[in-house]
Measured scan of single mutants.
Amino acid sequence: AREMGVIAAMRDGFGFIKCVDRDVRMFFHFSEILDGNQLHIADEVEFTVVPDMLSAQRNHAIRIKKLPKGTV
């Protein structure tokens, strides 16, 4: 199932999404941004959540798609 959120932080090559449906900041890597979009803080996005290979306690966001403002 796809989830929605807002870009909360951007770093060098990765960032975090503030999720709508869960009280966490979800890690993502820039390589998972679809359509070659440039994302910025406060952009609204949808994404798929998958378990982190390195840590069973953590998840991360993949297949991130920018949404029109006002969607979330």
Score class of each variant (00 low, 15 high):
Leu39Asp: 02
Ala42Asn: 13
Ala1Asn: 12
Val24Arg: 15
Leu34Ile: 13
Ala61Tyr: 12
Val45Met: 01
Leu67Lys: 01
Arg63His: 12
Ala1Phe: 12
Arg63Ser: 10
Cys19Leu: 05
Lys69Arg: 11
Ile41Gln: 07
Arg25Gly: 08
His29Val: 12
Val24Ile: 11
Asp43Asn: 01
Glu32Leu: 00
Asp52Lys: 09
Phe30His: 10
Ile33Gly: 00
Ala56Lys: 11
Lys66Arg: 11
Asn59Ser: 13
Leu67Thr: 05
Gly15Pro: 00
Gly36His: 07
Gly15Leu: 03
Phe30Asn: 08
Ile62Lys: 10
Arg63Pro: 01
His40Leu: 09
Gln38Ser: 12
Gly13Pro: 02
Asp43Ile: 04
Ile41Trp: 02
Ile62Leu: 02
Asp23Leu: 05
Asp43Trp: 03
Asn59Asp: 13
Glu3Arg: 09
Gly15Asn: 00
Phe30Met: 07
Asp43Glu: 00
Gly70Ser: 04
Lys18Ile: 04
Phe27Glu: 09
Asp12Arg: 07
His40Ala: 14
Asp23Gly: 11
Val72Pro: 02
Gln38Cys: 12
Lys69Ile: 09
Glu3Ser: 10
Ile64Glu: 01
Ile62Asn: 02
Glu32Gln: 15
Arg58His: 10
Val50Arg: 09
Arg58Trp: 10
Phe14Asn: 08
Asp43His: 00
Pro51Met: 08
Ile62His: 06
Ala1Ser: 09
Arg63Leu: 08
Lys66Leu: 07
Asp21Pro: 04
Asn37Ile: 15
Asp12Gln: 13
Ala56Phe: 04
Ala56Leu: 12
Lys69Trp: 07
Lys65Arg: 11
Val49Pro: 11
Arg63Tyr: 05
Ala56Arg: 13
Gly36Glu: 08
Asp52Gly: 11
Lys65Ala: 08
Arg11Cys: 15
Lys66Gln: 09
Ala1Thr: 11
Arg11Met: 15
Leu67Ser: 05
Phe47Gly: 03
Val24Lys: 15
His40Phe: 09
Phe30Tyr: 11
Lys66Glu: 00
Gly15Asp: 06
Leu67Met: 04
Met4Ser: 08
Ile41Ser: 01
Lys65Glu: 05
Arg11Asp: 15
Arg22Ala: 06
Asp23Asn: 15
Ala42Gly: 14
Ala1Cys: 05
Asp52Glu: 09
Ser55Leu: 09
Asn59Val: 12
Ile64His: 03
Ala8Ser: 12
Lys66Cys: 04
Met53Leu: 11
Arg22Asn: 12
Arg63Gly: 13
Gln38Gly: 07
Val20Phe: 11
Gln57Met: 07
Asp21Glu: 12
Ile64Tyr: 02
Asp21Leu: 07
Thr71Phe: 03
Ala8Asn: 06
Asp43Ala: 02
His40Gln: 13
Phe47Trp: 02
Phe47Ala: 01
Leu39Cys: 06
Thr71Leu: 04
Gly36Lys: 09
Glu46His: 02
Glu32Asp: 15
Ala61Glu: 06
Leu39Ser: 02
Glu32His: 15
Lys66Gly: 04
Gln38Arg: 10
Cys19Arg: 08
Glu46Lys: 03
Ala56Glu: 14
Asp35Lys: 08
Leu54Ala: 14
Arg58Phe: 09
Ala42Glu: 15
Arg25Met: 15
Pro68Val: 07
Arg22Lys: 13
Pro68Lys: 06
Asp52Tyr: 08
Arg63Ala: 11
Leu67Tyr: 00
Arg58Met: 11
Gly70Val: 03
Asn59Thr: 12
Pro68Ala: 09
Ala56Ile: 11
Gln57Ala: 12
Arg25Glu: 15
Ile64Val: 11
Glu3Asp: 07
Arg63Trp: 08
Lys65Pro: 03
Val50Cys: 11
Lys18Tyr: 12
Val49Ala: 09
Val49Ser: 06
Arg25Tyr: 10
Phe27Gln: 13
Lys65Trp: 01
Asp12His: 06
Ile62Pro: 00
Gln38Trp: 05
Ala56Cys: 08
Gln57His: 14
Val6Ala: 11
Met26Phe: 12
Lys18His: 11
Asn59Tyr: 12
His29Tyr: 11
Thr71Ile: 05
Gln38Met: 11
Glu32Gly: 05
Val24Cys: 15
Ile62Gly: 02
Arg11Thr: 08
Phe30Lys: 06
Ser31Pro: 07
Arg25Trp: 14
Glu3Cys: 10
Lys66Ile: 02
Leu39Met: 05
Met53Arg: 07
Phe27Val: 12
Phe14Leu: 04
His60Asp: 03
Ile41Arg: 02
Phe14Gly: 08
Ala61Leu: 03
Lys66Thr: 00
Arg58Tyr: 11
Asp23Trp: 01
Ser55Pro: 15
Arg11Lys: 14
Gln57Val: 07
Glu46Ala: 04
Phe27Pro: 15
Lys69Thr: 15
Arg11Glu: 14
Glu44Ala: 04
Pro68Met: 06
Val6Ile: 14
Ile7Gly: 01
Asp35Asn: 06
Gly13Met: 10
Asp43Pro: 01
Leu67Val: 09
Arg25Thr: 14
Phe47Lys: 01
Asp52Arg: 07
Glu32Ala: 06
Phe14Ala: 05
Thr48Asp: 15
Thr71Cys: 05
Ile7Gln: 00
Asp21Gly: 10
Val50Tyr: 08
Val72Arg: 04
Pro68Trp: 00
Phe16Arg: 02
Ala8Trp: 08
Glu44Gly: 01
Asp12Pro: 04
Ser55Phe: 09
Ser55Tyr: 09
Val72Cys: 09
Leu34Trp: 05
Ile41Gly: 01
Thr71Pro: 03
Met53Lys: 15
Arg22Gly: 06
